[in-house]
């Protein structure tokens, strides 16, 4: 067991887990944001640097602070460790700069992006970013490419989190895509535009934190906040069959994996469930999906019946009264 203090909150956790996991056990108020880490994918994390934290005391044995900020998703806890997340000005500054770096080349095309409303980068920049940009250079752009029948790759929006590469490596039969080129020319691509075709490729869409990989059967059908997520399951030979159905009216617009509190997929689903079962009759519906009340999706999830406060003219006081000439 290791005793860890994060932002002044103490928790006892088993050895061998990371600072990020310990912070998530305490709760969302101290958990650092993540873009590239995904709990279900091994060796993910460490790339985006949004989860950087300051370790002010390494352990009981070695109380020295760590010289640099560390990636909490890839640093194991030690007994007696003291960590500063939001309580550390250094961390807040570093996170702000990571957001700035990520947005340098990310197109601000949210109004036409299918991911808007469930985009991790939107949330991140809203919570930790600054409201102004300091660059007027042209952004880096790529041609859109179609990787397979059902997946659209919009590389311009990619933040190179490597999650989709890990999905292909760990849960599909053979990886045919990866990162090519170097530095800020790096791009996710397939070898000579090969199609990605296997039963679990659709999960790449679910793990993509931004709108770089989108579902062609859902593209431009609706804004996500006009659809209502519903938990459902079916007997499937390939996967668990536990999914989220996204309804607009009576129509199922898309099927995705279920996501946990941190926006990470709980169970990966197969392409049959994702693309081919779009009738309500294919599914056993369990009930509405839990949606974080801060999410834009919840705004439309249930009708809001609150009366507008009544407005009385008499309550209005003039801001200032000019003393006129009374004579």
């Amino acid at each position: 067991m290791a005793k860890v203090t994060i932002d002044g909150r103490v928790i006892e956790v088993p050895d061998g887990i990371t600072i990020l996991q310990a912070a998530r056990m305490i709760g969302p108020e101290v958990a650092p944001p993540t873009m590239c880490y995904h709990s279900k994918l091994k060796t993910s994390g460490g790339y985006c640097r949004t989860c950087l934290v300051e370790v002010t005391k390494s352990s009981e044995k070695d109380p020295r602070p760590m010289p640099k900020l560390v990636a909490s998703c890839r640093t194991d806890v030690m007994d007696g460790m003291e960590v500063g997340n939001l309580s550390s000005p250094k961390v807040i500054e570093a996170r702000k700069s990571v957001v700035e770096f990520l947005l340098l080349n990310h197109p601000l095309d949210c109004p036409i992006c299918d991911q808007a409303g469930e985009c991790h980068l939107q949330d991140l920049s809203y919570e930790h970013g600054s409201s102004k940009t300091r660059t007027d250079f042209e952004r880096r752009t790529f041609e859109k490419i179609s990787i397979g029948e059902k997946i659209q790759l919009h590389m311009t929006r990619c933040i190179l989190c490597y999650r989709c590469v890990k999905v292909a490596e760990q849960i599909t039969d053979g990886r045919v895509h990866g990162v090519i080129n170097r530095g800020d020319h790096s791009e996710i691509s397939t070898y000579i535009e090969q199609a990605i075709d296997n039963d679990f490729s659709g999960n790449m869409i679910d793990v993509c934190p931004v709108g770089a990989l989108t579902d062609k059967t859902f593209r431009f059908k609706s804004r996500v906040w006009f659809t209502k997520p519903v938990l459902a399951h079916r007997n499937c030979e390939k996967c668990s069959g536990n999914v989220n159905l996204w309804f607009k009216g009576d129509e199922v617009l898309r099927v995705t994996g279920r996501k946990d509190q941190w926006g990470e997929v709980e169970e990966f689903i197969c392409n049959t469930c994702r693309y081919d079962k779009k009738a309500t009759s294919d599914w056993t519906v369990e009930g509405p999906s839990p949606v974080n009340r801060h999410s834009v999706i919840s705004a439309n999830h249930y009708e809001v019946f609150t009366k507008p406060t009544e407005f009385k003219l008499n309550d209005v006081k003039p801001l200032s009264i000019q003393e006129g000439d009374k004579s």
């Binding site: 640097r49 190179l160 170097r182 800020d184």
Partner: peptide
Amino acid sequence: YHHESCGQCSPCREGTAW
């Protein structure tokens, strides 16, 4: 350094280019 950055982590990938 811009040319040689590997592109894995965001501060180096974007910062060197900037």
